[in-house]
């Protein structure tokens, strides 16, 4: 603090509106108490904040844009995620609408993957990870103690960054889900599920002749589509994609993107991506994460043409990433 400030502490305190930075910082500290209040007042506060925006994340207080939807498939409220003592996600609230493709973008380490993994509780496999807040799908709390993650994960499928086919045949890879869940009543049923899934994943034509060869023998792009086929074989309601194209070449990427578009007719999709172009091409709405905070959610077109928040703008214009 400057000497002048120390000399007149009373004056500084009496004019909080003039010092938004201080206010935001003090509010962040008293977060647990202020949490509920903050949600209620968010919409009212949002426009005012834009005036105070700068690139310092400590000043960020509220998510700007349209985080919520009337036709929500999944609703997340006040999500905080911790790895041991370290907090990875700060107070994120967002909806994902039915049959929508929601893209999550942001610089690396911003928590978007962590957030995605909370949606089907894949974070359970990390011992030190702790999730706070409410995540609901069709009004049902996913973190309710008596909810079975097996059922949840059958309903919320996931595709990973690196293609991870099992060391089995292509057929067995796709049939794995239906088999463990007992979805097929007969061999014919199973064959049908496998074929449909592979077709939906636009892979059928390429592999129908060699269904019983190992899935690890396919090219990277084919492997990733195999993983998508594997995920949709159990007919999930939501598909989570964690940078599904980051390990692929541009042609394979184009195919997957095409596929995502087709899939959005039947499924709700949340996709984390590193590439802004990809988000622009495939998604309906885009959420921008920064250092574990959700900065802005808006229709994709708007995010990429006139972002509401300075941080978003800085990111999409390439000032950091």
């Amino acid at each position: 603090m400057s000497p002048a400030d120390t000399a007149k502490p009373a004056k500084a305190a009496s004019k909080p509106a003039a010092k938004p930075a201080v206010k935001a910082a003090s509010k962040a500290k008293s977060k647990p108490k202020a949490k509920t209040a903050a949600i209620k007042t968010r919409k009212a506060v949002a426009p005012k904040i834009k005036a105070a925006q700068n690139l310092d994340i400590a000043d960020h207080q509220e998510t700007v844009g349209k985080s919520f939807s009337d036709n929500a498939k999944m609703t997340m409220r006040n999500i905080n995620v911790y790895y041991g003592d370290k907090q990875a996600i700060y107070d994120v609230s967002i909806d994902i609408a039915k049959n929508e493709v929601m893209a999550m973008i942001g610089p690396s380490g911003c928590g978007k993957s962590t957030f995605l993994r909370t949606l089907n509780r894949m974070n359970d496999t990390v011992e030190v990870c702790r999730v706070e807040g409410d995540i609901c799908m069709d009004g049902e709390n996913l973190y309710a103690p008596k909810l079975d993650v097996v059922e949840l994960r059958a309903r919320v499928g996931m595709v990973f960054q690196k293609p991870n086919p099992f060391p089995k045949s292509i057929y067995e890879n796709v049939a794995y889900g239906p088999k463990i869940h007992g979805l097929a009543d007969s061999r014919v049923d199973l064959d049908e599920i496998v074929e449909n899934s592979l077709r939906k994943a636009s892979l059928w034509e390429e592999v129908k002749e060699r269904l019983h060869q190992p899935g690890t023998g396919l090219s990277g792009g084919q492997q990733q589509r195999l993983c998508i086929a594997r995920a949709i074989a159990v007919s999930p309601e939501v598909i989570l994609m964690d940078e599904p194209c980051s390990a692929l070449d541009p042609i394979a990427t184009a195919k997957i993107e095409e596929l995502i578009e087709e899939l959005s007719e039947n499924f709700t999709i949340a996709i984390v991506t590193h590439s802004m172009q990809q988000a622009a091409r495939v998604s309906h709405r885009t959420a921008y994460f920064h250092l574990g905070k959700l900065i802005e959610v808006n229709p994709t077109e708007q995010v990429f043409t006139m972002p509401q928040h300075q941080l978003t703008e800085a990111y999409i214009t390439g000032r950091f990433g």
């Binding site: 059958a154 991870n164 794995y176």
Partner: peptide
């Protein structure tokens, strides 16, 4: 690799499966 386990768990397989 952990990604194998993740792939299976994300399909809704139980840990023992």
């Amino acid at each position: 690799p952990q990604s194998m386990r993740d792939g299976s768990l994300a399909m809704g397989a139980t840990h023992s499966e």
